[in-house]
Write a protein that binds this DNA or RNA. Structure first.
Lengths: 252, 252
DNA sequence: GAGTGGTCTAGACCACTGA
DNA sequence: CAGTGGTCTAGACCACTCA
């Protein structure tokens, strides 16, 4: 037949739905505005709720939406740029950092971390910190410091001053370099709680090794909210522009 | 009653399932081994297939599994470390890079990219490249080069030599610095095809500005497979260790 | 064509929030 | 308490791969 099958490209419903919603967010909604609830939206588009949710999940992953149980779905602001390098932002004590120490224990490092540190299985200072930007928890971190890196550490440690004392000692070292990797992960139950997300929420895991005096002086595993953060690494300051991926079909 | 409710913590089934499977992968399976199909697994665990799939999706997101339609679910190898900085890896032509040029057109840059370049809406050279490691497509990139950055460019351009010619000219510039950001995204239909994934697959979007002669000489948006890649940034070489997130409950 | 993962439905109940 | 998103079920059909 001569029926030009213009739109029978077999695009999944949720995918099409996602693009429709994405466009609607740009043109008909303001940041912070709350969307109709999932049951209404599904009915409005004539799909099952599960299908609608598949589209919403993707949009949340891309940082366009924020959903909170018991509350509703709101339009998310553009992701914030969060500097993770160079040194100034993360090396404890240097610069105006936005990290808060929330706890510290001395314990054996988990296997992968021990490998990072190049130590055996001996106990290390394990400091949990969290990073707050614009009033929002954006990251939680575990910083591992071998006792050898802080030999002058006071022996009068209480749970309250343990973390700050280690950081203070660490800061007296001269930092020679660092090593970083970024990968996708999902929030553990504990991380999720600190980041005000549900367990399993997508996160960017930043693993850093700090070098001093030819050794690994410390290692950290920082977990950033992937929905709200854009990590910036810069010689020249942070990028200013928000990048919504738009299907620019070019250059084959 | 004295019934100590040891395991009534209201952990979702799929979450528990995920940890069970994760442990099983460590102890009972080899990399590359194929798992029982979803229907069998669901039956074995006494859950609906959708619930089982929720667990598998998470494990795939974390790079533990690889699923291919029509084939099956296999145990993924540890993520590969992919260097994205410093310069050597990405600045066209320098070092032993693993990028292939697959196309080039001259066209107006999309809005966000124009902002990155600090140019108006004029046409820029848009080069698509792809990065292959260990025989696998790990990234696809669009590199945007304003004509002003390559003034000596030959006027004898064919589709076949356009891209390489621009890269050659670009390489004659002295690179002064770069700017980078990393965020989570989902693969466009086009990117997905090049990365051998389904549309919507999670990707790490690396946006880079290259500076030369006090200007932005080029900008690129590179899309890495989030399931198989760990991006490394290093003064001191790549990290060697694979980091499976394990719920180390420490330091409150 | 048999078997796989991917999409979709129409329900149900639960956990959480805030008035 | 009513209303929200989160979890779960038991089906169905589709798109894809490969022998």
């Amino acid at each position: 037949m001569g029926t030009t099958q213009l739109e029978s490209v077999q695009e999944p419903k949720y995918w099409h739905l996602k693009t429709v919603l994405n466009d609607a967010l740009d043109s008909e909604f303001e940041v912070g505005e709350i969307l109709p609830n999932e049951r209404d939206l599904a009915a409005r588009f004539g799909v099952a709720r599960a299908t609608l949710r598949q589209a919403l999940e993707q949009l949340e992953l891309e940082g366009r939406l924020q959903r909170r149980r018991g509350v509703g779905t709101t339009v998310a602001p553009p992701r914030m740029g969060v500097a993770v390098g160079p040194v100034a932002e993360a090396w404890p004590g240097s610069g105006r950092d936005s990290w808060n120490t929330v706890g510290c224990v001395e314990a054996a490092a988990p296997g992968p971390v021990a490998a990072l540190l190049g130590t055996g299985g001996e106990a290390v200072h394990t400091i949990r910190r969290e990073r707050v930007m614009r009033g929002q928890h954006v990251a939680t971190e575990l910083l591992y410091v071998p006792p050898a890196s802080v030999p002058e550490l006071s022996t009068m440690l209480t749970p309250a001053n343990h973390g700050p004392a280690v950081l203070r000692e660490l800061h007296t070292l001269e930092l020679e370099g660092e090593d970083r990797s970024v990968e996708l992960g999902s929030a553990s139950a504990q991380d999720a709680k600190q980041l005000d997300r549900l367990p399993g929420a997508p996160v960017l895991v930043v693993t850093t090794r700090y070098f001093s005096e030819g050794r690994v002086a410390a290692a950290s595993v920082a977990t950033y909210r992937a929905d709200t953060c854009r990590l910036t690494f810069g010689d020249s300051g942070a990028l200013e522009v928000t990048h919504h991926q738009d299907d620019s079909r070019q250059a084959s």
